[in-house]
């Protein structure tokens, strides 16, 4: 079996744990993950989350997902070899000023995100940490890529493994913020995150940005209204006396908040940001929404 240095060469450091490397005139991105030097590691073996993450990545083949090509071990480290994305691919895609030049481009990128999420959900994989920082775009070719490592989970994996602290706060769904229990973390949470990204694309700022769970929920309810038994069956029995609910608020008119959106766009956004996870649109249905006609 070839060693790391025999297989890959011309290492060029991008960041502390990320390198650009070459093999047979092809470039790759290599990410280093330490696995064997963690405290108590010898007694637990290879960390479970690394095994799950890599095995998920190994089975994915989608144009909008940064592809894992190879996994190698060398001493206490794992070397994950990903497809190389050239300089035209910019990370944290919403910080790219060119992103907002053409309305159609936003729609195209939103479609690609939803299409990827639908692909993952069909394979029983949850994203759990979808946020702009993990999304790279090539504005010239209009291709978007999601970097998955460190975020994905199969939803056939143990439920207790789904921590309610997953994901960047701004993109967390109300049911996760309510901490309804680990078992509630499922596909609608990813759709909520896409809805937040959609809103951010339109407003050029995070849709919700509260620094804590309570403040974030308050922001959500300020825009979408406080949930009731009608809008979210079971919410009062779980959180009826909960301080997180705050004083009752009426939903705002999304047409006024997002004047740049046509009726189809408003309909899709409202369905993705539906407070009740059971009523929230699925990614599979979202990609078929009339808003994407012509994409």
């Amino acid at each position: 079996m070839l060693t790391l240095r025999e297989k890959y060469y011309d290492f060029d450091q991008i960041s502390s744990k990320v390198f650009k490397c070459r093999r047979d005139d092809q470039f790759f991105t290599m990410k280093i993950v330490s696995i064997l030097n963690e405290e108590n590691q010898a007694n637990n073996g290879v960390p479970y989350w690394i095994i799950r993450e890599i095995s998920i990545l190994k089975e994915l083949d989608h144009i909008n997902i940064v592809r894992l090509i190879d996994v190698m071990t060398d001493g206490p480290d794992l070397f994950l070899v990903f497809e190389y994305l050239d300089n035209e691919f910019q990370a944290d895609f919403l910080k790219n000023p060119k992103m907002f030049m053409y309305p159609q481009m936003k729609k195209e990128f939103l479609y690609q995100i939803l299409n990827t999420v639908a692909y993952l959900h069909a394979r029983k994989i949850l994203l759990r940490d979808l946020r702009p920082e993990n999304i790279l775009v090539n504005v010239r070719t209009q291709v978007l890529k999601i970097a998955l490592f460190g975020a994905a989970r199969t939803f056939e994996a143990p439920l207790e493994a789904y921590s309610s602290s997953v994901g960047c706060l701004s993109y967390r769904s109300p049911e996760v913020l309510f901490q309804f229990g680990c078992e509630k973390y499922s596909t609608p949470n990813d759709v909520w995150a896409v809805g937040c990204i959609f809103g951010e694309m339109l407003l050029h700022r995070p849709l919700f940005s509260g620094p804590s769970d309570v403040e974030l929920l308050d922001e959500i309810f300020t825009l979408l209204g406080t949930p009731t038994e009608e809008t979210w069956p079971g919410v009062t029995s779980i959180c009826g006396t909960c301080a997180l609910m705050g004083p009752p608020q009426q939903p705002k008119d999304l047409a006024k908040e997002f004047p740049m959106l046509n009726p189809d766009g408003l309909d899709l956004l409202s369905k993705m940001l539906c407070l009740c996870p059971n009523y929230r649109i699925s990614a599979e249905d979202a990609v078929k929404h009339p808003y994407f006609k012509g994409v």
Partner: peptide
């Protein structure tokens, strides 16, 4: 078997199965 030996075998299994554990 010591933990580090089992861990070494885990890594051998993972690489032999090409990390396709799902």
């Amino acid at each position: 078997f010591e933990g580090k030996v089992i861990q070494k075998m885990e890594l051998l299994v993972l690489s032999t199965l090409e990390w396709e554990m799902g």
